[in-house]
């Protein structure tokens, strides 16, 4: 397995560095695309991450349902909290593996040696992580709709999930590229990540609860806007700081 994954990775780099220009994509975007595609292909072949993330999601929802002994009213009120806590915890599993597996295989050095912009590496990794989190979120929306009998597939709620996941994976990718060098990286990542993503978590839960309770949009719209602003702040900050994290 690992041989094929490594092969995939070097192939992707060659493509990113040397393949002839196709259509109107800039080399930068093609580099980002190559990294995302490499991660996806490695995952499709091994399925080590997505399976454990989905199982973890199922178990977390089970634990919440049993631990909280929910009646119908309570469910309606806390489903947004259950949704976001599960996305964050399952997401941390994925974020932790994303760069750790690169480092363990030694392919992280190859990625850093490749003649590509460091920010392209960041956005490639971030989009890969985002796709995993979105798969989890989709499974979770389905699961909570069925188990909690609350319809979660509403356009604005899906938008909230998208915005929240973007902010969460942005900071998460930056911080996991730091914790990958630490001794106890599995425990360090949540400790570093949770205080920093709180603004995203607060606005996402508030807006989701407002949308689910069918409150008028002026009650929860400010939270959606705040979340969008937080996403922009984190994207810019991570873009600026990632160079300092991976320089070596």
């Amino acid at each position: 397995m690992s041989a094929s994954a490594e092969h995939t990775q070097s192939e992707a780099q060659v493509q990113a560095a040397a393949s002839p220009r196709r259509r109107a994509m800039t080399p930068y975007l093609r580099t980002v695309g190559a990294i995302v595609w490499k991660d996806l292909r490695a995952e499709i072949r091994s399925r080590e991450l997505i399976n454990s993330m989905i199982l973890f999601t199922l178990m977390t929802v089970l634990v919440f349902s049993l631990a909280l002994e929910l009646d119908a009213d309570a469910r309606q009120n806390i489903v947004a909290g259950v949704l976001w806590v599960t996305i964050v915890f399952a997401g941390i599993l994925g974020l932790g593996r994303s760069l750790a597996s690169e480092k363990d295989r030694g392919s992280l050095d190859a990625l850093l040696l490749a003649p590509i912009a460091r920010s392209a590496l960041f956005f490639g990794k971030m989009i890969g992580n985002l796709l995993f989190v979105l798969v989890i979120a989709f499974v979770l929306l389905l699961l909570l709709t069925v188990l909690f009998n609350v319809t979660l597939f509403k356009p604005y709620l899906v938008l909230m999930v998208l915005l929240g996941s973007i902010g969460f994976t942005t900071v998460g990718t930056l911080l996991s590229s730091m914790t990958v060098h630490a001794r106890a990286r599995e425990t360090l990542l949540p400790i570093l990540l949770l205080p920093v993503v709180l603004p995203i978590l607060i606005s996402a839960v508030r807006a989701s609860t407002g949308i689910l309770d069918e409150m008028p949009s002026e009650d929860w719209m400010p939270w959606v806007q705040l979340l969008a602003i937080a996403d922009v702040i984190f994207l810019v900050a991570s873009y600026a700081l990632f160079d300092f994290v991976v320089e070596e």
Partner: peptide, 22 residues
């Protein structure tokens, strides 16, 4: 958690900034 001193300084500076922004 970070052993290499140069890396520790760099990471601490980055985290100090992003934590403060958040």
């Amino acid at each position: 958690g970070i052993e290499d001193p140069e890396r520790r300084r760099r990471f601490a500076a980055v985290y100090g900034i992003i934590a403060f922004a958040s």
